[in-house]
Design a protein around this nucleic acid. Structure first.
Lengths: 111, 111
DNA sequence: TCGATGGTTCTATGTTTTACGAACCTTTGT
DNA sequence: ACAAAGGTTCGTAAAACATAGAACCATCGA
């Protein structure tokens, strides 16, 4: 079962949910940016340049979190996002590389 | 542009569409079964054990085709489905392996 | 030729997803 | 204590999606 903050354990991460989470261009964009940072980097949720209201942003981060792709850590007032790289790589080896390689225009110009 | 039957060319296959196609358990099930056959095998569309009306089945096969995951070939009365394994592997190496490895219960018991 | 078979398309319906404003909660900083 | 800042949740509206029945169009086989 997910922890109090809604993070699934490694074994609970489901391929279906992960694929659904990554099917959205905005969420893929978040993951892509996290992939460009150094391992374990934490990023502020507003730092991804998403042209969305904060309610919608919150929604997308929830989907990513519940799918198991990111971990959200409370840092006082803010909530930082961290890619669960090692775990995802362990569970679905190669998946994140495919996301990383996608051209940026493709992810943003999608229908 | 897609060919007359709606098959995208290799370069036109988009990660977003592929992920969206694979996010559905029924469609993932089809791909999984195709992965179990020998390379290049053709399967009859009714042979996947989908508990769905033929209209819905047709819809799912269309999504798979337009995403570029399968090729549909007319064989007289029937339309056979063929996994575009080599092409997908070329474009998104490792992706199909992830699908193959997913446990069957997980794919079918999803919400 | 004609009925049965296999598939697609159209239309309709219910569900899910995306999106946003408004209200709300918490922490920070003064 | 209180206002500002960062996020979540709620209510809601619009779009997208899954599903199936019905009409339709081929092809196959008798």
């Amino acid at each position: 079962m997910p922890d109090e903050q809604g993070h699934p354990e490694l074994e609970e991460i489901e391929l279906g949910k992960v694929l659904a989470a990554l099917a959205d261009p905005a969420r893929r964009r978040v993951i892509k940016q996290l992939l460009e940072d150094e391992a374990g980097a934490e990023r502020h949720c507003t730092s991804f340049g998403l042209q969305l209201s904060k309610a919608t942003r919150s929604h997308h981060f929830r989907v990513l979190r519940e799918a198991g792709l990111i971990r959200q850590v409370d840092r006082g007032n803010s909530r930082m996002a961290q890619l669960r790289y090692g775990e995802i790589e362990l569970r679905f080896p190669g998946l994140l590389e495919l996301i990383r390689r996608e051209k940026e225009e493709q992810a943003s110009s999608e229908t």
